[in-house]
Amino acid sequence: MQTSEARPYVVLSCAMSLDGYLDDASDERLVLSNREDLDRVDGMRAGCDAILVGANTIRRDNPRLMVRAPEHRERRAERGLPPPAKVAILGHGDIDPQSRFFTHGDAQKIVYCATKTARRNHVRLGGRAEVVDGGDPVDAGFVLADLAGRGVRRLLVEGGGTVHTMFLTAGLVDELQLVIAPFFVGDGRAPRFVGDGHFPWHPGHRATMVDVRQMDDVVLLRYALSDRFEAS
Rank of each mutant, 00 (worst) to 15 (best):
T3D: 10
E5A: 11
Y9A: 14
Y9F: 15
L12E: 13
L12W: 13
L12R: 06
A15W: 01
M16E: 08
M16Q: 13
L18K: 03
Y21R: 04
D27V: 09
D27Y: 10
L32V: 04
N34K: 03
E36Y: 11
E36P: 05
E36G: 07
D37W: 09
D37L: 12
R40Y: 11
G47V: 07
C48H: 10
A50I: 01
G54A: 15
I58D: 05
R59C: 08
P63F: 01
P63L: 02
R68Y: 13
P70M: 08
E71C: 03
E71A: 12
H72D: 03
R73W: 05
E74I: 07
R75Y: 03
R76D: 04
A77V: 07
A77Y: 08
A85T: 00
A85E: 00
G91K: 00
F102S: 01
H104Q: 12
H104L: 13
G105E: 11
Q108D: 12
Q108G: 05
V111W: 14
C113G: 09
K116L: 12
K116T: 11
T117D: 06
A118M: 11
R119E: 15
H122G: 14
V123K: 12
L125E: 03
D133P: 01
G134I: 09
P137K: 07
D139F: 15
D139M: 14
A140H: 01
D146M: 15
R150S: 03
G151T: 05
R153N: 06
V157T: 05
T162C: 13
M166K: 12
G171F: 12
E175V: 03
E175W: 02
L176G: 02
Q177H: 07
V179T: 15
I180T: 13
I180H: 08
I180Y: 07
A181L: 09
V185Y: 00
D187V: 00
R189A: 15
R192S: 11
V194M: 13
H198Q: 13
F199C: 05
P200Q: 05
P200W: 11
W201Q: 07
G204N: 09
R206N: 05
A207E: 04
V212Q: 03
R213S: 10
V218P: 03
L221R: 11
L225M: 07
F229S: 11
E230A: 12
A231Y: 15
A231D: 15
